[in-house]
Design a binder for these strands. Structure first.
Length: 473
RNA sequence: GGAGAGGUGGCUGAGUGGUCGAAAGCGGCUUCCUGCUAAGAAGUUGUACGGUCAAAAGCUGUACCGAGAGUUCGAAUCUCUCCCUCUCCGCCA
C-alpha cells in the first residue's frame, strides 16, 4: 500500500513537471497541451467537438479505464446528418407542393396531389431512418463518459490515485476496535434486526446511534448553510430524466432502486434531484454561482460489491448524506471545485477526524466527472483511510445532459454552465469514524465538541447492558 | 380514486384546417426625445440542427404551439392514446 502510494506520488510529481516543462519550453507541446485544455474546458461530449476533434476526444477518453471508442459514433453521426438532409429536402418539396396546390386550378391540383402523396410516403421513410439514426447517435453519445481534465493523473485504477495532503493526527489507541464491535454494546447499531426488517446491508440505528445520526445531519446542514450554501430538501424519488441528466443512466441501470409501477427511482445521492432543480432552465449570469446543500437518504443496490464491507455500517443499501451542489460559470468551476472540497474538509476538521485528500486518477474517476478529489477519513480499527466524501467537477457534462444554461451579461446567447458536487459528508461513515477515532479503553466514546450541543449536551456515549440489546430469537 | 377544465413564445393571452413561428399586451433590447428620474416615440425581440461565409454578421433550409400516433396535398386548429397542471368531491400523514 505504502509502496504503491510513494510510487503514485512520485509518478504524479513527474507528470506535473513534464506538463509544466512542456508548456514553457517546448512550443509545439505547449500548443498541444493548450489545445487539449481548450477541448476540455469548452465542451464535454459535445457532438460538434467529437466530430471535429475526434482524435483529441478519443485520446482524452483513452485515459479512462476500459477505453472508449468514438469511431462508431462519428460514423453513425455522419449518416444521421445525411439522412437528416434528405428528410429536410423532402419536407421542403412537400412545403412547395402545398403552396402550389393552394394556388392551382382544380384539374392541375389533382396532379399535384398525386405527387404530394408520393413525397409524403418518401418523407415517412426518410423520417423513420432519421429517427432511428438519431436515437442511435443519442444512445452512443449518452454512453460516453466525461473526458478527464488535463490535471488528472494517468492510471488504470485506485492504486494510481495521488495523495494531495493529509490533516490531523491519527489517534494512538491500543488494540483499536472496529465500529461494528463498538456499536452494539453502546446500543448504537442493531444489525440483525435491520436484516429482519429489510435485508442484508440494512441497519437499525438505536438510541444514541439514532441521535448522533440526526445530530450529524443537523450539524452539517447548519455548518454549510452558514458558509453560504442554501438548504434544499428535495424529493427522494426522481424520474428518469433526472437520472439521465446527472449521468447515472443509461449506463448504470442496475445500481439503483426503481419503483416498477411508476418509472421513479430512489435517489442514489442528493446530487440527482438537486442538480436537476434547474433542468431545462436558463439562469441569468448574475444569479451564479448557486450553492446548495441538501440532506437526503441515499439508496444504492451495491451491485458488484458483494463481499466488500459485509460487516458494519460502511456500505449500506440505505444511508444518509449531506450533499453540496454548485452551479457556476465555466471560468470559475476550477476555483469553485477547490472551495467545495475545502468546505467538505472543514467538516472533518470541525469533527476532529484525521483525513487525507486524494486526486483520483483517470481510470478511477466517475462517469460524469472530469476531475475528482476524494476525502478519506482515518479508521483506526481498520487501520486505513476510507472514502467519506467525493468532490467532483463535471464541467458542462451534466449541464449538457440536463440542459442547464446561463445567460451571459454581455451577449444574449445562452450557454451551458458548469456543475459540481461533493459529499459534505456521508453521515453513516462519519458516525462510524467518530466511534473508531474517539473510542476509549472502557468501550465508551467521546462525542466531538461541536456535536455536543446537537446531542442535547451528551458528551460521552457509554456501554449499556440492556437485555433488549441482545437478540432474542 | 371520481367528476370537470386546461396545457400556445420570458409572461399574460388570441387563434378551430392553408396566407401562423404564430395577433395583442406586458417584459427585454436598441435608438430618439427630455437637467436627472419618471413618462413618451420608433424599431427590434424564441430554440435546436443544417447550408452559405476564413470567421462573425447577414442571408437561407428544416423542425418545434405538452408527448406520440392518425385523418388530409396541408394540422396549433380535427380524431385517438399517453403525460402533466388546475378546480371540486372522496381518502389520508
Amino acid at each position: 500500500m505504502d509502496v504503491c502510494l510513494i510510487f503514485a506520488a512520485s509518478f504524479s510529481a513527474f507528470y506535473i513537471i513534464v506538463v509544466f516543462a512542456d508548456e514553457f519550453t517546448n512550443p509545439s507541446a505547449f500548443k498541444y497541451v493548450s489545445s487539449l485544455q481548450k477541448v476540455q474546458s469548452e465542451a464535454m461530449i459535445d457532438l460538434r467537438l467529437i466530430r471535429e476533434k475526434t482524435e483529441e476526444v478519443e485520446k482524452a477518453l483513452e485515459r479512462r479505464n476500459g477505453g472508449f471508442s468514438v469511431k462508431e459514433l462519428v460514423e453513425v453521426d455522419a449518416s444521421q446528418r445525411k439522412a437528416q438532409g434528405e428528410w429536410e429536402a423532402l419536407n421542403q418539396r412537400s412545403n412547395q407542393l402545398q403552396g402550389l396546390i393552394k394556388a392551382a386550378q382544380s384539374d392541375e391540383r389533382e396532379t399535384l396531389k398525386v405527387e404530394a402523396k408520393d413525397v409524403n410516403v418518401r418523407i415517412k421513410e426518410a423520417n423513420a431512418l432519421r429517427t432511428e439514426l438519431d436515437a442511435r447517435v443519442k444512445e452512443l453519445q449518452m454512453a460516453l463518459p466525461n473526458m478527464p481534465d488535463a490535471s488528472v493523473p494517468d492510471g488504470p485504477d485506485e492504486n494510481y490515485n495521488v495523495e494531495i495532503h493529509a490533516w490531523g493526527e491519527k489517534p494512538n489507541i491500543e488494540n483499536p476496535k472496529e465500529h461494528w464491535e463498538l456499536g452494539p454494546p453502546l446500543r448504537i447499531f442493531d444489525f440483525e434486526r435491520g436484516v429482519k426488517i429489510a435485508e442484508s446491508r440494512f441497519t437499525v440505528l438505536m438510541e444514541m446511534g439514532a441521535k448522533m445520526e440526526r445530530a450529524l445531519m443537523n450539524f452539517m446542514l447548519d455548518f454549510h448553510s452558514s458558509r453560504g450554501y442554501s438548504e434544499v430538501f428535495p424529493p427522494i424519488l426522481v424520474n428518469k430524466q433526472c437520472m439521465l441528466g446527472t449521468g447515472q443512466l443509461p449506463k448504470f441501470e442496475g445500481d439503483f432502486y426503481k419503483c416498477a409501477d411508476d418509472e421513479l427511482y430512489l435517489v442514489p445521492t442528493a446530487e440527482v434531484p438537486v442538480t436537476n432543480l434547474y433542468r431545462d432552465e436558463v439562469i441569468a449570469a448574475d444569479q451564479l454561482p448557486i450553492h446548495h446543500c441538501a440532506y437526503t437518504p441515499n439508496f444504492r443496490r451495491e451491485a458488484g460489491s458483494a463481499g466488500k464491507d459485509t460487516r458494519g455500517y460502511i456500505r449500506q443499501h440505505q444511508f444518509n448524506k449531506v450533499e453540496l451542489v454548485k452551479f457556476c460559470l465555466p471560468e470559475n468551476s476550477e476555483d469553485e471545485h477547490e472551495k467545495l472540497t475545502r468546505d467538505a474538509e472543514a467538516v472533518l476538521e470541525a469533527l476532529e477526524l484525521p483525513y487525507r485528500r486524494i486526486i483520483l486518477c483517470a481510470g478511477d474517476i466517475g462517469f460524469s466527472a472530469k476531475k475528482c478529489f476524494d476525502l478519506e477519513v482515518w479508521f483506526p480499527g481498520q487501520n486505513k483511510y476510507r472514502e467519506i466524501s467525493s468532490c467532483s467537477n463535471f464541467g458542462d457534462f451534466q449541464a449538457r445532459r440536463a440542459n442547464l444554461k446561463y445567460k451571459p451579461a454581455d451577449d444574449g446567447k445562452a450557454r451551458f454552465l458548469h456543475t459540481l458536487n461533493g459529499s459534505g459528508l456521508a453521515i453513516g461513515r462519519t458516525l462510524a469514524a467518530i466511534l473508531e477515532n474517539n473510542q476509549q479503553p472502557d468501550g465508551s466514546v467521546r462525542v466531538p465538541a461541536v456535536l455536543i450541543p446537537y446531542m442535547g449536551g451528551i458528551s460521552v456515549l457509554r456501554p449499556r447492558n440492556d437485555k433488549i440489546a441482545e437478540a432474542v430469537h
